[in-house]
């Protein structure tokens, strides 16, 4: 295990790192299925959840993971913090650092914020989503969800559909799934795809059409389209997006028989995905949320529990 103190980017991980996270998460998943959902693993560890952006899933998932591992967690509501008085990110972290936390879980609207923080704290930093950059724990839970159904990721065709340019989920998923050898087909309007393409990443190609992307796909990852994108000319309108970039039952029928549909949430029903696909239990959206807790427990454990226990007693 080559883990450092932080989990900031999927690119920092090796294939075997990813698999160890998943293996550990599998063990932790059992805890959530018990009557008493708590173990003392991280007793005495302090984790600060610093969310500069709104979040339901990720934030509650991390918080529950911390509680089930008996860590002490502190949630800082940015809207009620000194940040509103103009405190810089650096000063906020330096002040919190004085309180001797063991980990920061960071969600920030600026790409690279977790990396910036990791340089000024001794605590572990877990990236819970930064700007349009990465969302590594989402990718780990996506991989875990896929691996529960499909044995060999390297034999899979994965379609990732939508606003690739602004999706940290897409980027982390592309890095992670490419590393594991999946064939990745990207589709979306060119105005929402990176201009550079993906020539630098193995096994990734831009599909010529929606049908090519989903045909015989084993996994389809749908991304949320933000309504604001129309305002900056990336798409004409949400109506148009719905007409041409929504996953419909007809398109889904082109995929392989056991296709898994994933979505990181929050979902815009009938914008990027037909509501009926979700209603007919064709997706793994809620399985993803369930696995999210296990993956985050594994991350906290592997960064805090394993690492620190290797340190000599003082």
């Amino acid at each position: 295990m080559s883990l450092k103190k932080d989990l900031i980017s999927i690119k920092d991980l090796t294939k075997s790192d990813i698999y160890s996270f998943i293996e550990t998460a599998k063990e932790f998943k059992k805890i959530s299925l018990k009557d008493i959902k708590k173990v003392p693993t991280l007793r005495g560890k302090t984790v600060i959840n610093l969310f500069y952006e709104p979040s339901t899933r990720t934030r509650s998932s991390f918080e529950i993971a911390q509680k089930r591992l008996s860590a002490d967690s502190l949630n800082i509501a940015i809207s009620q913090s000194s940040v509103t008085k103009g405190e810089t990110l650096k000063d906020t972290i330096l002040n919190l650092e004085s309180m001797k936390p063991d980990a920061f879980v960071i969600r920030h609207h600026e790409s690279g914020a977790p990396y910036f923080i990791s340089k000024i704290t001794k605590a572990s930093v877990i990236n819970a989503g930064d700007g349009i950059n990465e969302h590594p724990t989402q990718t780990l839970l996506d991989i875990m969800t896929v691996m529960e159904e499909k044995k060999d990721i390297s034999s899979l065709k994965v379609a990732i559909i939508g606003d690739i340019s602004h999706s940290r989920v897409a980027r982390s998923d592309i890095f992670g799934l490419s590393m594991l050898g999946a064939d990745i087909y990207i589709y979306g309007p060119y105005s929402l795809l990176p201009v550079t393409g993906f020539k630098d990443i193995p096994n990734v190609r831009i599909a010529k059409g929606f049908k090519e992307a989903v045909k015989n796909a084993d996994v389809i990852i749908m991304l949320r389209i933000q309504k604001e994108r129309a305002g900056y000319h990336f798409i004409p309108s949400i109506e148009e997006y719905r007409n041409f970039f929504k996953l419909t039952p007809e398109l889904l029928s082109l995929a392989s028989k056991g296709v898994m549909v994933l979505h990181p949430g929050p979902v815009n029903r009938d914008v990027e995905i037909s509501g009926s696909i979700i209603n007919r239990d064709k997706t793994f959206i809620f399985k993803q949320v369930e696995n999210g807790i296990a993956v985050r427990m594994a991350c906290l454990y592997m960064l805090l529990g394993v690492q620190k226990s290797l340190e000599p007693d003082i």
């Binding site: 129309a230 305002g231 900056y232 000319h233 798409i235 004409p236 309108s237 109506e239 148009e240 007409n243 041409f244």
Partner: peptide
């Protein structure tokens, strides 16, 4: 703002243009 270009194509448009009004906004 962009017009519904996919819809235009689907209903038979063969190109798009704001001919007469140059598009000043580069983005």
């Amino acid at each position: 703002n962009l017009s519904d270009i996919g819809e235009l194509k689907e209903s038979g448009a063969v190109a798009i243009s704001d001919d007469g009004n140059p598009v000043s906004d580069t983005s």
